[in-house]
């Protein structure tokens, strides 16, 4: 078992529990929504770069994944903040 994988797994679990806690035990403000979505984007990057080993890939694939994630998360953030 690789230590880096274990550390990343721990971080993913902490982020998941934190976002669930934020949603359940605080009133859903725009700040909470932004935090939840940013944490989710961060989790997405950890899974892609560490678990899927994208960190070893050509820069094209790294930039493409971040770009697609940005294309999905940004409109959702804008829509939620403006509603």
């Amino acid at each position: 078992m690789k230590k880096t994988l274990l550390l990343n797994y721990g971080l993913l679990i902490i982020l998941t529990v934190t976002t669930a806690f934020l949603s359940n035990y605080t009133s859903i403000t725009n700040v909470a929504v932004n935090l939840i979505l940013v944490a989710s984007a961060f989790k997405f990057i950890i899974v892609a770069f560490q678990f899927m080993e994208l960190k070893k890939a050509n820069a094209f694939w790294k930039v493409s994944v971040i770009f697609v994630l940005f294309l999905i998360i940004t409109p959702i953030l804008l829509l939620i903040n403006n509603s």
Binding site: T19, L22, S23, V33, F51, I80
Partner: peptide
């Protein structure tokens, strides 16, 4: 892992925000 990635987008948008 792709199933993970998709769920990591679905979970906050459907269940939390």
């Amino acid at each position: 892992h792709m199933c993970d990635l998709i769920w990591l987008l679905l979970f906050p948008v459907l269940y939390l925000i």
